[in-house]
Design a protein around this nucleic acid. Structure first.
Lengths: 335, 335
DNA sequence: CTGTTAGCGCGTTCAG
DNA sequence: CTGAACGCGCTAACAG
């Protein structure tokens, strides 16, 4: 590689000091135009590429942030990444995407990477956090969509309970009353909030929530399929199902179909997230849209504030969600 | 952050030189056990974390590679990433994932990142390459699944033509003869190879390929939908459709259904890739499985060989594909 | 406007 | 087995 050319070589060739070369590249205004052009000529002639490592080392910054997601297999994070990257690149930052695989040990690993100054900060989209770390040793971190009960960190979030209530009210408005809910893993704050929203909407509509209509999943396609079986095993009839993400909703629809049920004629289904699954789904899924890209944009903005200036440790941005009605829901009693 | 503790602080506390601390951490065998333990005690007491930047700077290496993909929105890359990361992390490397958005300028940007020594190497999963670069200035690069006609680089690939022929033969074996093909963007080598495989299988079966049954897409869901409309507009009947990826196949199925066709009773559909789309699809998609994770594993192995030792510039690894038969294909003439 | 100088934190000589 | 000293390439501070 031509990378072996360094700033001294350029300085020697141009007959100036290394400082002048550095300034030409970084603060051209401080250099006389004639000198500047001569330097640039030499830079080009030698194929000089400044060594980012040396630069970062000198400045004690890497201009890189890590976006750590719960499980990279979930396409949900793809547009978040784009939002993060858009903001990052226009502010001169690079983004490294990491996969926690829902494993606290892996989260720890990434935290260490930042502590070793591999990156300047960490954007967490992971619910689990190693408990053995003391706050003092933590690098700059911000959180999106997850809830870390143990710490106070700047966060981008949505109103999970409100969104779940909106989804449920949509079904109530179509005349459904036997509305099942397929939740995420339950000790988690996010899942609990959505369960609460589902319950609240039912109660407000005068429909007593039936615990037997609440099934737990793990956000996977397979758990959506299993949930349908579990519901039929319990023998409590239902005409609508609100799932806590699109992937489980898709699994549920496939399983309902396999059992000879029509969607939405026999059972209406609502998802959550509005990922690509909602579009691939047949019929296209009614769902709660989370503005993934905007979430990425906002959380990266928080990260920059955190890195560049001070930011209140409990700063919070709430982004709005939206019910998107497609073809997987229909009025009750159509059969 | 506690990161401000450096090796000198540890040395001072332990009453040894910085070299001894460095050795204790890097080559413990060279240090007398008693000294070693005292040093480690001080490391722990001070919460010393070696600064990776300084280390990398000193060694002129970052232990980081960039995985640059055509378009991160495609879930196909997620498992590739996992494979890359598995190999990388057990060899002490970090992985940075970049999104080229099918834009040569962005590819160039990532190449520059490596030239600036932000990372040690670049794994390309992008068809387009800026032409203005001369080979001499290129950093270590390897390629997976794509074909760069302009350069010779170590590559992991599949037999696209053979796989496409296998998909087509599956349909022929079910009695179909009017088999349409929905290709990717056509000047691209990969798309062309798959078209050739489709043609070859037809010819070998004595079925003359009809050009009007060949439609071009861009790997998006929408282009799968549009392709179905285009086929019906052309008025040439078909009972089977082989799409060049799963996402287009899913779009095609949705559009076929919307037009009142049943899948697979009226039209059999085969996809390509075996991404999560194939599972979400209703009916589950018959498709050509590409071993994404293995592709990631192999390409990262090539990268490591390229970085650590020498590697023939035209080294090639071919990974096998496999036809996965699910419910979207059925014998012809069932209606 | 430009040059000189002093590190950033670590790994690696080379002596002892 | 250990310590002193150098330098990786660059930028910031201070002089001129």
């Amino acid at each position: 590689m031509a990378g072996s050319v360094n700033i001294r070589d350029v300085a020697a060739m141009a007959g100036v000091s290394v400082a002048t070369v550095s300034r030409t590249l970084k603060n051209p205004d401080l250099v006389r135009p004639a000198t500047r052009e001569e330097v640039l000529r030499c830079v080009a002639a030698l194929g000089f590429v400044p060594n980012a490592q040396a630069r970062h080392f000198r400045r004690q910054a890497t201009d890189t942030v890590i976006l750590l997601v719960r499980d990279i297999s979930n396409p949900f994070y793809l547009d978040v990444f784009k939002g993060v990257e858009d903001v990052a690149s226009s502010a001169g930052y690079k983004v490294l995407m990491g996969d926690a695989r829902s494993d606290p040990a892996r989260v720890h690993h990434y935290i260490d990477m930042v502590r070793e100054r591999h990156a300047d900060g960490l954007i967490l989209m992971t619910g689990s956090m190693p408990v053995e770390l003391d706050d003092a040793g933590l690098p700059p971190m911000v959180v999106a969509l997850e809830y870390l009960t143990t710490r106070h960190l700047p966060t981008v979030r949505i109103d999970n309970e409100g969104a779940a209530a909106a989804a449920t009210r949509h079904l109530l408005g179509l005349g459904h009353t036997a509305i099942a809910h397929l939740s995420g893993p339950v000790p988690e704050v996010m899942s609990v909030a959505r369960v609460a929203g589902w319950r609240r909407a039912l109660v407000e509509a005068g429909v007593p929530p039936d615990e037997r209509l609440e099934v737990r999943g793990d956000y996977s396609l397979a758990s959506g399929e299993a949930a349908v079986d579990a519901l039929y095993d319990r023998g409590v009839p239902f005409t609508a199902l609100f799932a806590s993400n699109d992937e489980m909703a898709a699994g549920a629809i496939n399983r309902l179909r396999a059992r000879g049920k029509r969607v939405p004629e026999d059972v209406s289904v609502v998802g959550f997230d509005d990922t690509i699954f909602a579009a691939v789904c047949n019929p296209p899924l009614t769902t709660i849209r989370q503005p993934q890209r905007e979430i990425g944009v906002e959380v990266m903005k928080l990260m920059i504030e955190r890195l560049e200036g001070l930011l209140a440790p409990d700063a919070t941005v709430v982004v709005p969600t939206e019910l998107v009605v497609r073809a997987s829901t229909a009025p009750a009693g159509q059969r």
